[in-house]
């Protein structure tokens, strides 16, 4: 008798990871916070005017880099509706789109900042929280749980606090904090990720910005599916931010929202925030399968990517 090879599978035992469509670069044309809104329409105009040359340069350089010159470039704009709410979508969005157009810019996608915290039934920020892997100080051998100050993340070893000393034990002296990957001297960064004051979770601006970068890189999955998918725009915009989809596609023919790389054109006041974002992103474990999908697709297209996620981010501070 010939042995027969049997194949057996169980659906509940499988892991399916959907791939998401990707552009070559996602250009963020700006963030809009309440203070920018209150500063009047000139602030927005100035922001777009400064962003335009960088956006067109990025577009050109990608066209040169991609074989055949068919670079997929998408642009996006982020409005804060998480830390403070102002105006209404119906009032504000047409103004933003027009002001951008005045500077020769097209906004393909518009996102609400709160989408990074919650988008429909999914909480992207929590997906990221569970994927944090703390940067270990020298001597971390796994024997104790990662030293973690709840709600904080750093790139090294904190200064010791006057902690537990046994009776008649030796008290500790002050020591400086240290960066784990320091070269000679440290640049120690300690980032607040959230606070749970009043029993409610409030995510920090850098943490949501890190989630935003991961969404733009197409790196997050919820049960194998992208947690936030851009929705087409309706004929009108609602009067309440809550009624606006987390991310809307303003231009029907736009290149995909997520991209291999991101470029953010921001006011230089966001520099500390983006340093914090990079500190967070260096400690997020992205699904290996998602990473692999992206790498193999980019290689097929002849645009090799950097190994490390943080190296796929670039900035212009104006």
């Amino acid at each position: 008798m010939t042995p027969v090879n049997a194949t057996f599978g169980e659906v509940a035992a499988e892991r399916r990871i959907a791939s998401s469509p990707l552009s070559h670069v996602s250009i963020e044309l700006g963030h809009l916070y309440m203070e920018d809104f209150e500063a009047g329409p000139d602030r927005l105009r100035q922001q777009f005017r400064r962003a335009e040359p960088w956006a067109s340069t990025a577009r050109r350089s990608w066209q040169e880099r991609v074989p055949g010159g068919r670079a997929r470039v998408s642009t996006c704009f982020l409005i804060d509706d998480y830390f403070s709410r102002f105006s209404t979508p119906a009032e504000l969005i047409p103004v933003i789109v027009e002001t951008a157009a005045d500077s020769g810019l097209t906004i393909d996608y518009l996102a609400r900042e709160s989408a990074c915290a919650r988008a429909g039934g999914v909480e992207p920020a929590k997906l990221v929280e569970d994927r944090l892997v703390a940067d270990p100080p020298v001597g971390t051998n796994g024997s104790r749980p990662p030293a973690r100050e709840t709600g904080w993340l750093c790139n090294g070893t904190r200064s010791p606090v006057a902690g537990v000393v046994q009776a008649m034990g030796v008290a500790q002296k002050w020591r400086p904090p240290a960066q784990n990957a320091k070269r000679g001297h440290s640049v120690f960064v300690d980032v607040e990720l959230w606070n749970d004051d009043d029993g409610e979770r409030t995510w920090s601006c850098p943490f949501l910005a890190a989630v935003w970068q991961l969404l733009r890189l197409g790196m997050l999955r919820d049960d194998g599916r992208p947690p936030v998918v851009p929705q087409p725009r309706g004929t009108t915009f609602p009067d309440d931010w809550a009624d606006l989809p987390p991310i809307i596609r303003l231009v029907p023919s736009a290149a995909p929202f997520a991209a291999y790389t991101t470029l953010s054109v921001l006011s230089s006041r966001f520099m500390p925030v983006e340093l914090a974002v990079r500190t967070i992103l260096s400690q997020v474990a992205v699904d290996a399968e998602v990473l692999g999908q992206v790498v193999s697709r980019s290689e097929d297209e002849g645009v090799p990517l950097e190994d490390e996620l943080v190296d796929r981010l670039s900035y212009v501070f104006t």
Binding site: P145, G163, V164, V165, Q166, A167, M168, G169
Partner: peptide, 14 residues
């Protein structure tokens, strides 16, 4: 050489 602990911390408790 071990001694009494002065305060109950969350780490110790865990």
């Amino acid at each position: 050489g071990g001694g009494e602990f002065p305060t109950l911390t969350e780490e110790l408790l865990r």
